[in-house]
Design a protein around this nucleic acid. Sequence first.
DNA 1: AATAATTCCAAGTAATATAGTAGGAATTAT
DNA 2: ATAATTCCTACTATATTACTTGGAATTATT
Lengths: 144, 144
Amino acid sequence: MRLSTRGRYGLKAMVDLAMAYGDGNMNIGALATQQGISDAYLEQLVASLKRAGLVSSVRGAQGGYSLSREPSQINAGDILRALEGSTDIMDCVGTTHVGCDSACTCSARPLWLKLQKRIDEVLDNTSLADMAEDYKIQKNRGNV
Amino acid sequence: MRLSTRGRYGLKAMVDLAMAYGDGNMNIGALATQQGISDAYLEQLVASLKRAGLVSSVRGAQGGYSLSREPSQINAGDILRALEGSTDIMDCVGTTHVGCDSACTCSARPLWLKLQKRIDEVLDNTSLADMAEDYKIQKNRGNV
DNA sequence: AATAATTCCAAGTAATATAGTAGGAATTAT
DNA sequence: ATAATTCCTACTATATTACTTGGAATTATT
């Protein structure tokens, strides 16, 4: 039940953008360097985030990326769904309810539904504003 | 953040064993047929469960597997940990705390820790007895 | 004692998903 | 015109998952 690097790098990049919110654009190079990954790889992740409408971009010199709305209006669930396709732990718990023919008779299904619900509760109730705030506090404490 | 088939098949097999608890052994063939997977594959999963001390086995004719303790004393977390190594969504949230050098400065870490906690809460508070009970109720309702 | 039913074990393979790399076209401020 | 940047698509390498295969060891039954 591991989270992919897409989700990890992408979410951290979004927190970086949240902390720069209101200060214009950030370019891929700056974002990628902070995380020690290649520009090209992060570009792909940001492309997904853009397609999902979470970031805006400006092309050309002095261009870059910025959040398309306030950090408080973007949550971790939005971001992970954009980066990983969904937050579902398996097909049969999604809203589309694909998969497993015997869904309604599966002895494990009630557990999976409950687990999925709890996961989405956490992700959907944590905004970028929350994360950026926590991070600032942590840094001010000197835990760097 | 998908759950592997090991986790899914293995957990369902454990519920099957829970429902047969007290009635002697079940053999791999019976368990595998119920799920439509090969004996050989399920054997591997059950081997992990046995190594973790969750099931006991008797070799030879009329042998088979059974839970090594009462269904109420085995929870979903135990089972998934045996089958998948851990329930961790990433290395840096585990008790061993491997990985990511910059753990304490990571802007996403508080979220990951909270998410992991919620996941383990659900898994560790759901026993095989609970699951078997739910399943019986569901079947009696005629939702088969 | 022979047989059939079973767990146990180790190694191999096929398929899928993840994690990137590479190269260049399009756009825009300077 | 140039340099800085996003955008796009395809490719590749690696790791993980999901099995398959073959046979040895054990034990109840006949």
